[in-house]
Simulated scan of single mutants.
Amino acid sequence: MEQGFNFSNELSGKIALVTGGTKGTGKSIAQRLLNAGATVIITARNAPEQANSHLHFIAADLSQSAGTQEVVSKVLEQFGRLDILVNNMGGSKTPGGGFAVLNDEDWESTFQTNLLAPVRLDRGFLPQMLARGNGVIIHIASIQARLPLFDATLPYAAAKAALVNYSKSLSNEVSPKGVRVLTVSPGWIQTDGATGMMKEIAARTGIAIEDAIQQVMESLGGIPYGRPAQPEEVAELVGFLVSPRANYLTGTTFVIDGGTIPTI
């Protein structure tokens, strides 16, 4: 059966939430959905440095249960529903050095941010999606779920692996009821934060920024494409996955890593 899609303004009438949407990849995803016609809500601890009147901002700490509940309540009170949830917030602040330097707080805080925050948001928004028989949930994971860097980000890699497993399980439950659940696993993304880290490494070690970038790529085992991803490239994938063009896609993990993962 043939089905036609309007690629222009294809998300018109949809309401979307992007967590961690004030900078980096989250900012690019929010802009991509906005460009497609969606009403876009973003959330983070702090307001964006440059305000965008077309985006609706909610300040919240999603690593805490109260912050998650606040976002769910405000979105549903103000907009009445949510059609698209992009669980983008995540990151690692644990010290390098392997398992011996990590304490309970390192593990707990990492899992709160990278696993439990998405779980809570899904739990908050899924009932109204299921009641309407329609919705899309995207979990932004990481290739570290399959390619962990034990010396630097052990808890982060473990949390993202759990997120991928949870996402697949959730899809099996809710896809028959009309809600699509997908995972996007990026490799290294050259956000402003990553660029700042490269500058710090270069200054600390006395090497050029280009050499610092090469060192990081080598620590990943190499990136066949030859460079990190740009945030806009990840956003374009997400924009497609939440669109009507991807209606038959659910329960799948999409890797966008320039070929970094060395296996099929």
Rank of each mutant, 00 (worst) to 15 (best):
P231S: 03
G259K: 14
Q215L: 02
Q78I: 01
V75I: 15
T250M: 07
V242H: 08
G193S: 06
V18A: 09
H54A: 15
Q144V: 09
S169L: 03
V71M: 13
F99S: 08
S65C: 02
P231V: 01
E236I: 05
P244Q: 01
Q31S: 14
H56K: 15
R32G: 01
S185A: 15
I207E: 14
Q215P: 00
Q190W: 07
A157F: 14
I143H: 05
V86E: 13
I189Y: 04
L149K: 15
R81S: 05
F125I: 10
L85R: 05
T110G: 05
V71G: 12
P127L: 10
P176E: 00
N247A: 14
V101Y: 04
L82I: 10
I189H: 08
P148L: 11
S73K: 08
G13V: 09
V40F: 07
F5T: 11
E173P: 01
P148K: 12
N172A: 09
A47C: 07
R204Y: 10
Q128H: 13
P48N: 06
G67P: 12
T263D: 15
E173G: 04
Q128Y: 10
I15T: 11
A235V: 05
T22G: 05
T153E: 13
I41Y: 03
G90L: 04
D104W: 07
T205R: 15
I207L: 11
E200K: 15
T94G: 01
R180K: 11
T43D: 13
N9L: 06
T263S: 14
L62R: 02
A212H: 12
N134Q: 14
M198Y: 12
A229L: 07
L149E: 13
G196D: 05
G135Y: 01
G251D: 10
A47V: 08
T260A: 09
R245Y: 14
G187N: 01
L17G: 08
A51H: 11
P95T: 08
I223V: 14
I140Y: 04
N88H: 02
A44F: 00
T252C: 09
F57S: 00
V242M: 09
T191P: 02
N247H: 11
V174M: 12
D122I: 11
V242E: 09
Q69E: 08
D83W: 06
Q230G: 02
V136F: 05
P48M: 12
G98T: 13
L115R: 06
G196W: 03
T153D: 14
D104Q: 14
D151A: 02
Q3H: 07
G20R: 07
R227T: 00
